[in-house]
Each structure stands twice: as structure tokens, then as C-alpha cells.
Design a protein around this nucleic acid. Sequence first.
RNA 1: GGUCCUAUCGUCUAGUGGUUAGGACGCUGGCCUCUCACGCCGGUAACACGGGUUCGAAUCCCGUUGGGACUACCA
Length: 483
Amino acid sequence: MPGSKTIFLLEKNVNMDTVITRFPPSPTGYLHVGGARTALFNWLYARHMKGRFVLRIEDTDTQRSTQASVDAIFEALEWLGIDWDEGPYFQSKRFDIYLEYIEKLIDSGNAYYCTCSQEKLEEMRATAMASGKKPKYDGTCRNKGLKKTDNAVVRIKAPLDGTTVVHDVIKNNIVFNNTELDDFIICRSDGTPTYNLAVVVDDITMSINTIIRGDDHVNNTPKQIIIYNALGHSLPVFGHVPMVLGSDKARLSKRHGAMSVTEYKDMGYLPDAFINYIVRLGWSYGDQEFFTRDELIEKFSLENIGRSAGVFDINKLLALNADHIKLSDPVKITKHLAPFLNKLGFEFKEGPFIEGVIKTLNARSKTLKEMAENAAFYFQDTISYQEDAASKFLTADSVEILNTLIALLEALESFDEKSIENVFVKIMEQTGLKLGKIAQPVRVALTGKTISPGVFEILNVLGKEKSINRLKTAVSFIADKKS
RNA sequence: GGUCCUAUCGUCUAGUGGUUAGGACGCUGGCCUCUCACGCCGGUAACACGGGUUCGAAUCCCGUUGGGACUACCA
């Protein structure tokens, strides 16, 4: 458990120029697209700047936080390939540190105990609302110098006038009138710290100097700045990235389909394609659309983050996924494809066979799931013919072609793609038939379907023995049909 | 309601005072072709509106409208 001692060492060891970012999810659900993008931006920036990336779990809401959510977040980050240099820290284990800082604030006169009841607060809010005013704490206890009592909360002594300005690297300066702010609570009556206090204390003690987070936090920022000021600490760099919206322009939610990042994994998206897509949703690098992970690290910058909210478009993600599948090294694809093949009941080992399979399918698959389904015929021991395909192409006319092919393939010394193609050319010359006429029956014999990768490629990947067996099976199928 | 953010094709975006407003996804016409894809060539479609500033505004300013966020003893 990281006590204040650890933190002290940390502060000493880190160079002031080192960029330190963080991702602080609260474990009240799965990691969703917006959160993933925030994590990604922070991670990319840290990696780009050769800085450090810290993971912190904000679980002070004991009612809503669950271990299942913590696990789900880890799983999602792992899939995304986002690793951290420090942490995970758990806020629930740091209460003593927060309390220490709260006391510091009280002792320095920047915070005070307040004994106003919740009922009184409700009333205050109601009357303010009724008269069209902003619901704010009226400062009843601000100068009472109250001592700690059982049900007291601690409030920060916020400035009464002037302005607080957020220097935002994405949105530029955002000015808040201090009259809009009130003496908000930093410590609850049960002695637990509130969000704004915990965040600031964490960011200070963890030496976070760059905070990239969602737009939804801009209104919290002046409050946090007040705490930084009260603690006499310098401010980090703030950058607020716009929200990710659903197709109806509302905040992304379950209505719009997959909400958890891991659902995209299950649908057959490649993590690199997914991060490529979400990073482009709000960030750009000229006209470039396709990025590898390394390119992203090399090119990512805060300056090119956009200012307006973006709509999540599954179609574009799909297209990008197809590009990544097509352009990635088959060895890498193998790893990600395996679970989908296994799920269909197919076992295989790494090596030239599966890589050959992938090479015939990578320009034909938009997802890994689709690829696995289309690869089925490579793994099946017996091919079942689609009715239409068989009746159209596995006919008496085809028998001679298939038999000729079998004979020529059997005579082949090297079963490479070029030699296989030459066999077909030979048959074309002998029979005067066009390739299409020959290829379709062969395709059906090999795959059971009329749609597949090129027949030369399939023959090559399948190998001599399996290929010839399938062709022979088709010949006898035709013979059986006739009789 | 109040505060704050925001506004270029349907969507993601490039653009930082002078461009035929570019790219990508989608949709679409064609080429290539052993099927299906891939690829290639082409088409479709945008500066929300109104005022300024300027010789000149998508670009700067001010309104309007639309969208979003926040407004807790949640995070």
C-alpha cells in the first residue's frame, strides 16, 4: 500500500520535466468507449513524451464500487494494450492521506467544520431556486470557528469574489466567476473525503502534472483549483476532451449497442483497430486515417485534439478493422483469431498452415469473427455442400475436369501456388474452357460453397493430400447422385 | 432555470483571412477478375443563421438558434 513515504520518494525521483499523466476510472461499471479514449489519450501522451502513466481506481463510493468492475477495467485495458508505470492505486486505501490534507486545510484556515443539517441545506436550495437564484451554501458556519463534532462536514473556504480561470490546453482559457462557486464539502459527515478533495490530493501526491479528462469535468476544475491554491500547490496542465456521443447525439449509452470495450473484443475487433478508431474520434493528424500503435505514439499530440463532441460510428470502426486485419502480420492475427476459431470447435497450432489460412482471408474479413467463420472449411474433415452450389456445379459435366485435375495434381512434385496455377492453365488449353468454368466446381468441391478465396490459394494452403481427397470426394458425390 | 463548452458533407475530420472548401466512412457508377472480396478510377454531399471587422471571411468579434456537460455529504 502506497503510504506517504512512498509518495515522498516518488516526488524526489521524478524530474520536473517528466510528463506524468493518469487514468482514474471509478469501478462502478465496465470501461466504456469514452473512458477508453480518455485512458488512451493519457497513455499516448505519456508514451509520446517519454513520461509516466499512472492508474488509479477511484473507489470512494463504496456503495457503487465493485470488484467485478475493477476486474473488467483491467481486462479492457489489457486488451487495449494500455499499460501503466505506476499503480493501480486505490483511493479506498488512502483515506489517512486525505484526512491529513483535510486537517492541513482546517489548520491553515482554508476549511472549516459545518454543522448545518441536510434538511436546512435542502431548504436553502429550495428557496434559492424559487427566487431564481443559484443554489449555494450560504456560509452560515464559515466564520463560526466550529470544532469537530459527530455530524459535522468540512467545507472549503472558497473565494467570495474575483475569478478562477482554467488554462485549458484544448479549449483555451475558461473563466469562472467565483460568485458562482460556494463553500463545497470536502469531507462528509461520516469522515470520508469527497471526490474533488481526493482527486486533488491524489494528483498532488502522485506528482500528476498533466490532466487529460472528459469535458464533463470542466465545471469541477475551478473547485479543484481552489483546493490546489488553498494547499499552496502549483497547478497541473488541464485539457478537457469533448464527449463521445451516440448516433442520436446523446451521450453514448447502452441504447447504442455495445457499451463495454470488451464487447468489441468479442465482436472480433482488433485492439489496434479499435484504438485507431477512437483516437481519431477527437484527434487528427492531417488527412491520415490509418495508424499503427507505434505511429500513434510517435504522432500523438495535445494540440491536435478537437473541441467538439463526436458521434461514435460503428461503420467506420468496421472499415478500419478490415484495414488492420488486411495489413497486420498474420502471426499477430493468429493470436487474436485463435479464440474465435476455438469457439467454433477448431483446434490448430501456430505455424505456416494457420498463417496461410489467414493470408487467404485477410482481405475478405471485416472482423475476426467473420474470418473464423469463413475459415471453417479449412478445418472441417468432411465438406458439406450447399444445395444450390452442388446442384449447379457438381454435375456430370464436371467429372472429367475434376478427374483431370486430380491426375495432374497428383503428378505435381511441388505443390506451390504457381505450379497449381500452371495445372489449371494446362487444362484450359486442353479443353478450351475458361477458368471460371473450371474453378467453380473445384471451389465447391473444396469448400462446399460458391464463395471463397481463390482456388489456387486454397489448394496451396490445404496441401496436396487434403486437396486431392476433397476432389475425389466430390467425384464420388456426383457419381452417387447420378445413380 | 443558472454556469460552462461547442457548431465544415449523414458521420469522423483537414482547414488557422485570399483553396474549384481536401481526405475518410457510408451510399453510388465503372474498371480489374476463377466466385466473393481487395485494389484502382469516378460520382453524391458541408462551412447552422443574422449582424459586424476587413479590399477580402469557413477562418476574427457580437448576437440568435441547435447540440452537449455540469448544477450532490456521486465520481
